[in-house]
């Protein structure tokens, strides 16, 4: 199970990458949608491209091939679990 530190790191990375300027909720539920209208971060599919590249550069894990981006970017938890499982 991913730890809180990784969640915080990811939120900071996403905020920085996607230039989020709106005020964020104090706590972001790892189970909430990452992309789409229900996203607490207000991310859309163009942001998803930026996140995929940022995650690859930062953690050295490629989201692609038969690992569907849709599945990995479903929630903060699924993204964190994917990073934990795949980084060297």
């Amino acid at each position: 199970m991913p730890d809180a530190k990784l969640y915080d790191e990811l939120v900071a990375l996403i905020v920085d990458t996607c230039h989020i300027q709106e005020e964020l909720p104090d706590v972001i539920d790892p189970e909430s949608s990452l992309i789409g209208p229900d996203s607490p971060l207000g991310l859309d599919s163009l942001d998803a491209v930026e996140i995929v590249v940022a995650v690859q550069k930062h953690y050295g894990v490629r989201i692609g091939g038969e690992n569907t981006g849709r599945e990995v970017l479903d929630t903060l938890r699924s993204l964190a679990e994917f990073i934990n499982q795949n980084r060297a």
Binding site: S45, L46, A48, V49, V52, R62, I63, G64, G65, E66, N67, T68, G69, R70
Partner: peptide
């Protein structure tokens, strides 16, 4: 441009416009 990105990265391509799947 957004349509091009969608065709390349979203609609089940596995990313990189199917290049990663073909590499596999």
């Amino acid at each position: 441009l957004a349509q091009l990105i969608r065709m390349q990265e979203e609609i089940g391509t596995g990313g990189g416009g199917f290049r990663f799947i073909y590499a596999a």
